[in-house]
Nucleic acid binder design. Sequence first.
DNA 1: CTACAAAACTAACAATTGTTAGTTTACTTG
DNA 2: CAAGTAAACTAACAATTGTTAGTTTTGTAG
Lengths: 189, 189
Amino acid sequence: MKPETRKDEIIKTAAKLFKEKGYSAVTMRDLAKAMGIKAASLYNHINSKQEILKDIIISLAETFTEGMKRIKSSEASSIEKLEQVITLHVEISSNNIYGMASLNNDWMHLEEKLEYYLALRSGYEEDFRNILEEGVKGNEIDNINVEVMLFSILSTLRSLYLWIPNKEDVNTQELSKNLSKVLIHGIHA
Amino acid sequence: MKPETRKDEIIKTAAKLFKEKGYSAVTMRDLAKAMGIKAASLYNHINSKQEILKDIIISLAETFTEGMKRIKSSEASSIEKLEQVITLHVEISSNNIYGMASLNNDWMHLEEKLEYYLALRSGYEEDFRNILEEGVKGNEIDNINVEVMLFSILSTLRSLYLWIPNKEDVNTQELSKNLSKVLIHGIHA
DNA sequence: CTACAAAACTAACAATTGTTAGTTTACTTG
DNA sequence: CAAGTAAACTAACAATTGTTAGTTTTGTAG
């Protein structure tokens, strides 16, 4: 682990504020006040407000893409892959609740990096869809509308950041297991 | 149906813009341009930007609360109630995709009406939780962590607005049925 | 103690924000 | 046509926005 730079602190604080009010509603003066300094001082460490958002979102999006790549190339069954995807989301989300808020809600303000982000997201969804389709083909997964399944599961996983902080002890293993149960087997045997 | 006033048009246009960029990033000049008039002219019909957001969100929140009240007081089984809640979300969301975006993402900018909104939301979630708990008690629903079930289902339903526009023919009946299948019985028999 | 770099500061900027005041245009009704 | 009202306009405001320039303070290594 590299030591945390002042820039890292700023980005972390910004992510927290972005989660509360959204990127656009947070001013550089808000951010400076939260850091205990003046707005102009922020620019000794970062180049622009824009760049902060980019740093928050792109690194997260790439982490998801890398995780998916690993899962995709594994030899696991479709259901196992699905469980691995669930665990991936639980782990990334619990490690970066604030960043996940920006990833979900502020990506449209990315500007120069918007296209790249959208490409990562499309690729991720496509890989997710393939896992489900393979599962249906192999009779591991019921032959329901794949888009409905994809949407339902992905919506839940993408909202994890809203929910995790409310639970005191984030036992990620326990949470992954419970989520897998609910998402895969439903709530009614 | 009352005839649509100019104010209604403004609110509808605003909701559309709010969905694209979020409340804070949409300026009154953006909204005016989308309406084909000048920013100052908006104030012949509305009192403030704030009020537009309030009109969008509160009416939706109240619609959900009324729907839940109806479902709660029905004689249906727990699973049937759950199906009714799913249908409620599908119908409200498909009738007001843009407003649902504000409801989900811009509620924190409500200011004077924030407390009221939060009360409605808490009440709604509590009613939802009760349906699940009753279902578990009556052996209609598996004895899994109720909070995980609540979170998972609600996350999916709250994200509907993101997904519905992508599907050409929004056959709400079909969608409700498929969603019920996935949310209640999972994806793997 | 000196020198240097990191990181804070003050002051200011040009642009943009929501909103108001006052005026003109367009439409409807008698 | 006259009068009234609904809805647009122009012009401006005070506040806030992200950011820059230039300067001072703070901490560290020789």
